[in-house]
């Protein structure tokens, strides 16, 4: 056991990495922040619409998209793979809807069938062409953000700033923020009360598909770093934590954004300490934040619920006394 968990040394965990490789850790932190920000923001709306598991499905079915793109373009060209993954993501939502509209299979089962089939297809394709291309299926599962610093930097205005993937994630994050700012009203109403949105003349269908498109985009650009499964955590955890603490959507969105940086940094240092998967550690950090909020939230935390249960009889007695006076 002692081999497994290294001893904790503040200097080594928190200071030395930044001194030795500031550039590298800065890039990792930026990427982690961008991913959790875009995922967290859009994840709030996904959760409100009870579609969290669609995110799960999309993130898995991206694999065959990548494999096919790889196979067709015979190269590792980024754009081809990006398009392939995006098409696969959108195909997933369409297939799910097709199955559950044309049969009695419920949406959850439809999700399960579609994403496992597509994922299986992806694994087989990659295995068959394993000799020709190098695509690591396990990194599809949990990604590796730690490799970001090894990517070549892209030249902007004479200085090499960021790797391409970080830039792309930045673009997607901007798009998500822009989308939420511009269409906040529509997103809110269609999520809260589809009936009302019909009567207000806001199209639920269009909003749904725009959101799904944006979700696919976010997942596709995020999962190369954090992997298919951990993307889901990024989608759900920050929003869930924030919603334990605040009661209004704007506040929740701001808090989600605020939680991203601490969670990312905590994750990085956790992984440095334990020497384990960085993406995994980031998720664990977010999960710890959630558990803290769950326990101690002044509004709806477990502790609060417990206290109320204990106090309730007292309050009751009090009011009774008052009424007797």
């Amino acid at each position: 056991m002692s081999e497994l968990i290294p001893s904790f040394d503040f200097q080594a965990v928190f200071i030395v990495p930044w001194q030795e490789d500031f550039q590298g850790y800065f890039l990792i932190a930026t990427m982690g922040f961008l991913i959790s920000l875009s995922c967290g923001l859009i994840g709030n709306f996904i959760m409100l619409r009870r579609m969290a598991l669609i995110g799960d499905a999309i993130s898995h079915s991206v694999l065959p998209g990548l494999a096919v793109a790889l196979f067709l373009s015979k190269s590792l060209a980024t754009t081809a793979m990006f398009i392939g993954a995006l098409v696969a993501g959108i195909l997933t939502t369409v297939l799910i809807e097709l199955i559950h509209q044309n049969s009695r299979v419920k949406p959850d089962a439809a999700i399960g069938i579609v994403f496992t089939s597509l994922f299986a297809l992806g694994v087989i394709l990659i295995n068959v062409y394993a000799g020709e291309v190098h695509l690591d299926t396990e990194c599809v599962l949990y990604g590796e953000i730690a490799f970001i610093p090894f990517e070549p930097l892209i030249d902007i205005g004479g200085r090499e700033w960021f790797p391409g993937s970080v830039l792309r994630m930045g673009g997607v994050t901007l798009l998500v923020i822009l989308g939420i700012v511009l269409f906040y009203k529509e997103l809110l109403v269609t999520s809260f009360d589809p009936g009302l949105s019909v009567s207000l003349g806001i199209s639920t269908r269009t909003t749904h598909y725009l959101l799904m498109g944006l979700l696919s985009l976010v997942i596709v650009s995020a999962f190369q770093s954090v992997g298919a499964i951990l993307v889901i955590a990024m989608l759900i955890l920050p929003g869930a934590t924030a919603s334990m603490l605040c009661s209004r959507l704007p506040a929740i969105l701001w808090l989600t954004a605020g939680l991203c940086l601490p969670a990312t940094l905590a994750g990085i240092h956790l992984s440095i300490w334990l020497d384990c998967s960085m993406a995994g550690a980031m998720v664990i950090a977010s999960a710890v934040f959630f558990i803290l909020a769950w326990l101690f939230s002044p509004r709806r935390g477990l502790l609060q619920q417990l206290i109320q249960k204990v106090r309730l009889p007292e309050v009751h007695n009090l009011t009774l006394d008052n009424s007797q006076e």
């Binding site: 959760m47 009870r50 579609m51 969290a52 598991l53 995110g55 799960d56 599962l141 949990y142 499964i229 951990l230 889901i232 955590a233 989608l235 759900i236 955890l237 869930a240 992984s271 334990l274 384990c276 998967s277 993406a279 995994g280 550690a281 998720v283 664990i284 999960a287 959630f290």
Partner: peptide
């Protein structure tokens, strides 16, 4: 339900991966 499932799934998996 869906959020709870997704959350547990991903968190446990992350612990496992680490």
């Amino acid at each position: 339900e869906d959020s709870a499932l997704g959350m547990v799934l991903a968190t446990f998996f992350a612990v496992g991966i680490c």
